Simulated scan of single mutants.
Amino acid sequence: MKIVVSGGGTGGHIYPALALIRTIKEKHPETSFLYIGTEKGLESKLVTRENIPFQAIDITGFKRAVSVENVKTVLRFLKGVRECKKMLRTFNPDAVIGTGGYVCGPVVYAAAKLGIPTVVHEQNSVPGLTNKFLSKYVDKVAVCFEEAASFFPKEKVVLTGNPRASEVVNATPSGVIEGFGLSAAKKTVLIFGGSRGARPINEAVVKAIPLLAKRDYQVLYITGEIHFDKVQQDIKAAGAPGNVAVAPFIHNMPQALVESDLVVSRAGATTLAELTALGIPSILIPSPYVTNNHQEKNARSLTEHGAAVKISEQDLSAETLIEQLDGILMKEEELQKMKKAAVGLGIKDASDRLHQLMMKLANSRS
């Protein structure tokens, strides 16, 4: 069996794709994969690290305002469709899945036009432009939030959840925290701003360093590669306390998560799938720069159940961050209450659900 996977731009689109690939490989070792992405996207690094065959196309996303650049995007899309048709004819897949990001547009559209069974996987509660467009052409739309179903043709929607949840649920402690010079005996906060980092979170954390230095808990902060040097310099200037460790990126995120007592992050769908799979309380800072403010709606699925608290970006400061950290980590009853609420919110068999959907479609072609 042969399957083409496409998804790019951010880890939120790529990690579910990789989790699905691992599940299918485990159950069907003979399956061949081709991943189509962009060279500029994070997928070019993450996918090749997994030794998955990778091919790139040149494509950009649409600007929401009227722009000459959108005309160029249409031309790139049409060129991308032609290139993808050639790749698909050569590889001859049994099914194609897009997990989000504008790169999926020409890949999945080309596959649908060639009569290859197609799926798009929507991780968020509010879908992006690419998946809305592709939903008209694909065979099935896999969703993670029931709220997303209303945006797609009813007969195509299947609730699968996020494959990343199935993958992280089996994670076990492996000394990741100690590897960064922190103590396994202390309560640990893992802070990250997504695969590319987030400047407002960086600024709040740096300003909070003098206060964090006085706390009994410790912090592992993942800055994002483009912010790392600046944050590291700022933290050194603030005294570089021993209970705060920083890193630009972490590849073994499931192990870091399972060793953490609390997470501070954006409200990306894949992150929330990981948190609920592991039952980890969180402080969520939704990004206001995403399509239709979908992170705000994603966060609501946790905050309404008591599994998380929210700080809006405009209210984020060193003081508000410390207030929330103290309110959870220094009150054991609150911490345990949030852990209990987080457990069970995710769909833990998401990989199996999506795998079964892909197999059904692929077998329909043979």
Rank of each mutant, 00 (worst) to 15 (best):
D139L: 03
A142H: 01
A142F: 00
C144A: 13
F145Q: 03
F145W: 11
E146H: 03
E146M: 04
A149R: 12
A149D: 04
A149L: 03
S150P: 02
F152K: 02
F152V: 06
K154S: 12
K154L: 08
E155H: 12
G161M: 03
N162R: 06
P163N: 05
R164H: 07
R164G: 14
E167L: 15
E167S: 12
V168T: 14
V168Q: 04
N170M: 08
G175I: 12
I177A: 08
E178M: 07
G179Q: 05
G179C: 11
A185N: 13
L190S: 09
I191H: 01
G193N: 04
G193V: 04
G194M: 05
R196H: 12
R199K: 15
I201M: 15
E203K: 14
A204S: 14
K207W: 02
K207L: 11
A208N: 13
I209C: 05
L211V: 11
K214I: 03
R215D: 03
D216G: 11
Y217K: 01
T223R: 03
G224M: 13
G224D: 11
F228M: 08
F228A: 09
K230S: 12
V231P: 00
V231G: 02
V231Q: 01
Q233W: 01
K236I: 11
A238Q: 14
A238C: 07
G239C: 08
A245N: 10
A245R: 15
V246G: 06
V246P: 05
